[in-house]
Design a protein around this nucleic acid. Structure first.
Length: 276
DNA sequence: AAAACCGCCTGTCGGC
DNA sequence: TGCCGACAGGCGGTTT
């Protein structure tokens, strides 16, 4: 579910309400959410600990704790991290973990499909978290430029959609924002990455930045499961141009949209505005 | 290097 | 109405 804009929205919404709060209780309701840590160690090290900061890398959320520990979360498809100021609110059916702050509320990890993950590591020690360790450039950082995109695509024979989804290249794009970026840039998802001209790379770079910023400004895209850290829906689903518009018409030229599997994912595009 | 599978889970939707 | 397969914001591992 959540891609960069959703994860960033969760980060911004959670940070002010969890900062400096002390974890008094850890209720582990789905043990397999832990990747490289035993339930015993997880509970022992977190109880009595405090949240000192919350940062994002790609689609990962990293909570800084005391004792130089970090809690690394990934929401995968249907994970939610929601702060409840009122602990008497009934538990959602698929609640994996509850971090209780006594009378100060609780942070709950809810996840219908249970693909979401948690890791507890020493600060910066990500050797076991391969996806985090090998993340590519942050697309909203100054490091992401037309030149850096050129360096990633040059000599690549991969389809551009597959490259955009590769977290080792660019961190944070998923199926929605890859399709939206390619539409905005007027590029077919199956174009070989290395075939893009300077002008096309410029358009793609601008499109990625614009789409991600616009989506963050709208608190992300709620198709079904995604919620902010306050449990609210985003609104960017109302601004999607192409994703999920099967059977619809191109908002730019009016022709019927097409969709096909690219890199194993359903991809939406306009056959007129995005030529092969 | 790249692409195609499978598995992990649960819920929803469309077709028959 | 009911059943059954396809599919869904992701990603790691294995095979081709």
């Amino acid at each position: 579910m959540p891609e960069l804009p959703e994860v960033e929205t969760v980060r911004r919404s959670l940070l002010p309400v969890i900062l400096h709060k002390t974890i008094e209780t850890v209720e582990l309701r789905y043990e397999r959410i832990l990747q490289h840590c035993s339930p015993q160690v997880f509970q022992e090290k977190l109880m009595g600990n405090r949240f000192l900061d919350l940062v994002r890398r790609g689609k990962y959320l990293i909570f800084s704790l005391e004792d130089e520990l970090e809690l690394v979360a990934h929401l995968r498809m249907t994970g939610r991290l929601i702060f409840y100021s009122d602990c008497s609110i009934p538990m959602a059916k698929h609640t994996s973990v509850v971090f209780g702050f006594g009378s100060e509320g609780a942070l709950r990890f809810e996840d219908v499909r249970k693909f979401g993950t948690l890791d507890l590591v020493k600060r910066g020690e990500y050797d076991q978290i391969k996806g985090l360790k090998s993340l590519g450039v942050e697309p909203l950082s100054p490091n992401f430029t037309q030149a850096s995109l050129q360096a990633l695509t040059a000599k690549s024979t991969a389809k551009i959609k597959a490259l955009l989804l590769d977290q080792r290249k660019i961190a944070g794009l998923g199926n929605i924002y890859a399709d939206e970026s390619l539409f905005l840039a007027g590029l077919h998802p199956e174009r070989p990455a290395g075939s893009l001209s300077d002008h096309e790379l410029s358009r793609l770079h601008g499109a990625i930045v614009q789409v991600l910023q616009d989506a963050i400004g709208n608190q992300g895209t709620t198709l079904r499961d995604y919620r902010t850290g306050y449990g609210q829906e985003g609104s960017f689903q109302n601004k999607l141009q192409i994703y999920g518009k099967k059977g619809g018409k191109c908002p730019r030229c009016g022709v019927h949209l097409e969709h096909r599997k690219v890199a194993g994912r359903t991809s939406h595009f306009c056959p007129s505005c995005q030529r092969e």
